[in-house]
């Protein structure tokens, strides 16, 4: 049971990551791979605050994690987009690698071994279900907030910007500030997911936020359907749940982990070939 609750919480966290990443790349058209680093920024900020400033309430810590992620994302997008849109892809990769290296080499972050002993906040038998309720509610809220953003007048402006940036700007819209805003909203949500993650798992390590994590989240978005409100939800559930299916085979760990990895990667490769627009996507929006 605990195992299923943990899996469900993990799925909810990845729904937040996938949905917010979809806002940035699918709707905003901004090429970035650094989404996990904002997840990391949120997780580390929240984790460090909860360890070092125990008097702060958990909610405040998670919010501060979000704020830090937003600030970092504005700095990155603000400097990279000034060069060009394509440059953001490379700059984001460098930002992610560099910041992870910094985390690995500092003492107060726990170094490569990770940050442990994050307080559990909620105690007792209800801990799992309570976290599931909070994370599930956050995931649903993120999906619907993003849906509201992209369906309203703001979303209309976002798609206009993606279609014809020059015409959009010449109609009196500031495309640059809009891109930065979209980037910041998406990265802020990822930071919030990081905060919840840190509290539930009570342990975070830099390896979880490497480039492989970028590929995982990106894959969830693409597989589910980029630029569709519920695509990332489908993607996150499928990619996390299917590899777990073989857990019941009771294989030794040395075989289990790579086998799950092979299932995951083969699934992705098959989809990339056969259905590049994703399960819920339409062909016109394939990347």
């Amino acid at each position: 049971m605990d195992y299923l609750i943990t899996l469900a919480i993990l799925i909810a966290i990845y729904v937040i990551l996938g949905a917010s990443y979809n806002l940035v790349i699918g709707y905003g058209g901004l090429s970035t791979v650094a989404h996990p680093i904002f997840f990391a920024i949120g997780a580390y900020t929240t984790g460090l605050l909860s360890v070092n400033v125990p008097e702060l309430p958990a909610v405040v810590n998670v919010l501060l994690g979000m704020v830090t992620a937003v600030v970092a994302s504005v700095l990155l997008a603000g400097s990279a987009l000034r060069v060009s849109g394509d440059y953001l892809l490379i700059a984001s990769l460098g930002f992610q690698l560099g910041l992870l290296q910094l985390i690995k080499n500092l003492d107060f972050t726990g170094g490569p071994g990770g940050l442990s002993a994050i307080p559990s906040t909620i105690l007792g038998a209800a801990r799992g279900p309570a976290f599931l309720a909070i994370t599930g509610a956050a995931a649903v809220a993120c999906v619907f907030i993003i849906r509201a953003i992209v369906n309203g007048p703001y979303g209309r402006a976002i798609s206009a910007m993606r279609d014809e940036e020059l015409a959009f700007t010449a109609l009196g819209r500031n495309a640059m500030s809009m891109k930065i805003a979209i980037f910041a909203i998406g990265c802020g949500m990822a930071g919030g997911a990081g905060g919840i993650y840190a509290y539930y798992f009570q342990y975070i390590s830099p390896d979880q936020f490497e480039v492989l994590a970028s590929a995982t989240i990106l894959t969830m978005v693409v597989l589910g359907g980029m630029g569709t409100p519920f695509g990332p939800v489908v993607g996150a559930i499928l990619l996390l749940a299917i590899p777990q299916a073989i857990t019941f085979l009771q294989l030794p760990p040395a075989i289990m982990a790579p086998t799950q990895g092979i299932i995951f990667t083969v699934l992705v490769l098959v989809f990339l070939y056969l259905r590049p627009a994703g399960i819920l996507g339409n062909k016109a929006r394939a990347i």
């Binding site: 590929a215 693409v222 086998t259 083969v266 490769l269 990347i287």
Partner: peptide, 24 residues
Amino acid sequence: QSGNLMFFIFTLILSEFVIYVITL
């Protein structure tokens, strides 16, 4: 005519696949 991100996922996931097979 896939975009940058498609190539990014494809090449990275392919490497991951190779690495999992080799781990096995």
